[in-house]
Design a protein around this nucleic acid. Sequence first.
RNA 1: GGCCCCGUAGUUCAAUGGAUAGAAUAAGCGUUUCCUAAACGUUUGAUCCGAGUUCGAUUCUCGGCGGGGCUACCA
Length: 598
Amino acid sequence: MSTLDSILQEAVATACDKCFQATIESDSIQIQQTRKEFEGDRTVVVFPLTRASKSSPEATANALGSWLKQHHKLVCDFQVVKGFLNLTIVPEHWTTELIRAVETPNYGFGVQGSLPRVMVEYASPNTNKPLHLGHLRNIFLGDSVAKILKAIGHNVAKVQIINDRGIHICKSMVAWKRFGNGETPDSSGIKGDKLVGKYYVRFEQEYQNEVKALLEQGMDEPTAKNEADLMKEARLYLNQWEANNDDVVTLWKTMNGWVYKGFAVTYKEMGVDFDRLYYESDTYLLGKDQVAKGLETGAFFKKDDGSVWADLTSEGLDEKLVLRKDGTSVYMTQDIGTAMQRYQDYPGLDRQIYTVGNEQEYHFKVLFKLLKLLGIEGAERNYHLSYGMVELPEGKMKSREGKVVDADEVLAEMAATAEHMATELGKVADLDESEKATLFKQVGYGAIKYFLLKVAPKKSMLFDPKASIDFIGNTGPFIQFNFVRAKSVLQKSEAKHGPLSVTRLEANAWDQVELRMIQLGLHWPHVLSQAGAEHDPSVIANHCYELTKSYSRWYQDHPVVQEEDDAIRIARTTICLFFTQQIESAMSLLGIEMPQRM
RNA sequence: GGCCCCGUAGUUCAAUGGAUAGAAUAAGCGUUUCCUAAACGUUUGAUCCGAGUUCGAUUCUCGGCGGGGCUACCA
């Protein structure tokens, strides 16, 4: 809700009082942007007020409109269409607001640290295989939400939990030991995470073969899956790891080290980083103490077999296991432990935001209830930033079968497409190699980031590698392209006419198209706060597109540099400035960089 | 079976309960002596079905139908 709208709400409430002697809550008055096919700037929806006015919507609107026009300095005219009161705002208002916006650094942002500290967890990969397309959505989403929350004024800690232990990494270890012949990233030239992933896939293949052989000997399937040599060895490794066996731990450290090196390369390409890393090998036992405490306080209960449970039936959920009968941790145990650890590490932490796929919605619902049972104040403020799967045309990705779209490959292909297009269009022949490389990444990565972020998180989405991602239409590169053009206009204008002085702006310099664009841009603070409140970067992506679309249309028939009339030229230049400032800052919240030319 | 999410042009996405449901893409036509045509203009095309609440429903409620997910002493 912009300041203007709250002023108008007050004014309408007053008008209701004066015209109908009716008291109306100003908050309840609906104000919206006037549709472009009607005259006016802001629209009051009058239908709900007819109860107070005891007359028809049209009569009510007319009465309110006349009163506002006569008594309110911001309202210079009005029209009534059915039950809608369209108000025309004095042009000076928009000019004043525009100047204020252009002169405010980070227009629309909140005061840093004015809101409580929050934590955003994202990425959180397993260490047995490389990152894939699903991780890209996760990472871009989490990183963007972290940026948005910071922009509206939160202190933000970016973290991930690294699933570095467990049967999955043991599988890769077993396969490497047995089939690897000592292969390393250095010896093979294969990126570390790819190399470990290769042995994970190898494990699954060889394991399938073993199971098949056992089945042919007449064993039943569950037994065969349990008795296969490779699986027995993987379990052995897991036990030895937990017993701190030197050889196994050393191998585990070595292979995880390869993976981290590989991940680091990918994260750097993506332009994301973390304030703190949590490793499951450090935290997986932490939850046990919490479970013990929960037993003492009566939050949890013990069954006859020794397993520990939480009873959530009164909350409409099930009973949930928090400790196995043999005393070992389950997933939930360690998530409790990790969460508690984080509250300790970050005093004053208001809430944790978990960027995790929607298949774990139930898990997090339960986790937050359990934290509450354990006495965490505000545990219900924790938020599962749930997102839908990225599906391929042939369905879900299956990493066991190696049927995945690899993250590094996607990034590389994006940059290659950018290069291909730029070359074909003959755009950047004069740039040197390193400038080109930077540009192609800005454009290519901008395309994939925008593609993944423009869809509301909770929706699942389709990615067709063969169709590849567009660079025209509603895309990142379209926005970048218009940014670059506007920047170019600003440069040329300054070269020819000297620095822009917005204070020389005249109030009535705008045509209708420009007025609309300015109003759209002045809506940005509201867009940003909505994106923060809903943890939804797509709100920002859509705003950027809308603004760019209207700029691009305007640009077509509004010359700037050549314009001879000073007042008009200054007005148009200011629009370019406003546009570039806002696009650059809004897109940066999506993790998308703006090139200087393209 | 129980619980959760989603169903909008051929396709990919929009729309705090408000006006004639917006874009992009695909297809056709047109625009470059002028600041970057990765652009702009123009034509064609959609709310899964049925009730209910409301002055007003893509949006809220209920019942169907279709798709996905969860329902492990896996993570």
